[in-house]
Design a binder for these strands. Sequence first.
DNA 1: ACAAGATGTTTTAGGCTTAAAGTAATTCGG
DNA 2: CCGAATTACTTTAAGCCTAAAACATCTTGT
Lengths: 160, 160
Amino acid sequence: MFALDAETKAAEGPEHHRDELRLWLRLLTCTTMIEGEVRRRLRERFDVTLPRFDLMAQLDRAPQGLTLSNISKRMMVSNGNVTGLVDRLVETGHLERRAAPRDGRARLISLTPLGRAEFRAMAAEHETWIAEMFSGLGPGDVADLLRLLAKTKRSAAAAS
Amino acid sequence: MFALDAETKAAEGPEHHRDELRLWLRLLTCTTMIEGEVRRRLRERFDVTLPRFDLMAQLDRAPQGLTLSNISKRMMVSNGNVTGLVDRLVETGHLERRAAPRDGRARLISLTPLGRAEFRAMAAEHETWIAEMFSGLGPGDVADLLRLLAKTKRSAAAAS
DNA sequence: ACAAGATGTTTTAGGCTTAAAGTAATTCGG
DNA sequence: CCGAATTACTTTAAGCCTAAAACATCTTGT
């Protein structure tokens, strides 16, 4: 084992991390492919963008509403980005802004009844799309990936 | 096995695919975290954006140059997007456009010596960042993920 | 040769995204 | 109580991104 590692390192030179780089590119390819297909179907079936869908998904899980900061943390995007998304979804009647109870700076964003109804319909179909795209994996594969990606997430978080 | 599956389905209701959805969200989280950190470091260390880095990476592997269509296929982004990226990198002296040998429609894009030198310096550091972010995984984990993500890629491609 | 279709690139309009700067409200130390 | 720091949100400037349409060139069938 030791000899093999030494040999491998010698053959590839020092400081090479090819496998991790390949892994990163493969991870990125998978995500880009699936995300692109989801984006395409959301537009085609519901004439909605993926960021709007993602925002509504966050709000659907929080019936009492969320502040903008909270949303931007959960979505891992900038504050200004969320401001614009909310603007457009308020404009279309899917979201509403109201004052936060005891903080004059904050505003609570929540789904309107229209927004909730439309989101639920989209989410049901979305879930079948995802299942379809992962249908080539067995239950064991899914479990393995869930575990390995949890580990990856911790590893990446430690480096940030 | 059969009884357990039937029970599980009955408990969750028909047509539910929770694990696949969780897997997709976890995949997306990992990618977003790593991508965000790479983006931040590229800006901080080299004052370059991730799309520009990705474009230069494609061209570094193809010394003879690539057409725009070819680039957009490899990067999985739209044609118009690549036009704009190339415009900006030609402007800064990193890329050059020249006529394709036997096709008057196509143009070959390639790195200038400046572009190549700058890319190589960035790429070396980039590779260590990636290795760092995946350092919480063992060699076996990396191999498992490479295999499972290859399977995921095939599965997603089949659904598109 | 020529029309029809395919392919390669650019343009356009609109939306997404970020970093950084700006505005407003709260909290906290003294 | 009050000024300083913090927190919440918005605005701005620049760039990224897509779909669709427009243009240009090549290929193919006849």
